[in-house]
Amino acid sequence: MGIIRALDVVYEYLKRDDDGNVTGSIRAVDGVSLDVAPGDFIAILGHNGSGKSTLAKHMNAILTPTEGCVWVDGKDTRSEEEVWDIRRSAGMVFQNPDNQIIGQVVEEDVGFGPENMGVPTKEIWERVEESLKAVGIYELRKASPNKLSGGQKQRVSIAGVLAMHPKCIVLDEPTAMLDPNGRKEVIRAVRALNDVEGITIILITHYMEEIVHADKVFVMDHGEIAMQGTPREIFSQVEKLKELRLDVPQVTLLAYELQQRGVALPDGILTIEELVEEIGRLKECQS
């Protein structure tokens, strides 16, 4: 069984009138099943309102399913006794770094999680040090979080989760508010955690370029999984993605446009190197 497993998950938001009476419901997640293997880098795409954030909140028991079941590291998220273990196994990072940082000093903020878990002081400091090093901001450990850039703050948030030694980290649009450099820093840190530490990553994003290296991509629409596959399989379907209000990386779009105009390129080109390679090959065939 995978580190995160969802079986026929349904989640309904209840609509209430001014007096609190239930007037209806919206199915934000509608029959989702998925199985995430330990060490995988998973990406979840979907337009605003497609249900991806609601699904993500099931992965560390912030929400529990209306119907169906979610297991995190083998534990049922509906079991109240196990909620703390579940949250320790699967940490979460949100969009706005300013809402997630509470410490006055970077290292104190990162130590907050393990401290609450009752980790001995000496070990807290070891964890803080290794977490800050893992995301590349150890030199900022004495800084005040509000003096940092967006990308640095977001890495403080990630280090805070990391210090709790999770098996899995769920990141819900961690780069939406960042400048290009900040985006790069965060994605690089996340990939390193996956590659080097073997932590399972679930990344939700609207930036298609960020997920070309994912092991698997899920595309959500109307609370359901509309597409799933490798980035190459997903990004080969330019028209389908556009119907789902999504996009492909610009370089994939360029290859697609060239194909449409009769250039013999393979489907699903994901990186600049691949495109240049393929065009180079075409030129050689011509001459």
Binding site: N48, A176, M177, H206, R245, D247
Partner: peptide, 9 residues
């Protein structure tokens, strides 16, 4: 356009 999906952007 921060936080919007590609089409919304």
């Amino acid at each position: 356009t921060a936080g919007l999906d590609p089409k919304g952007r």
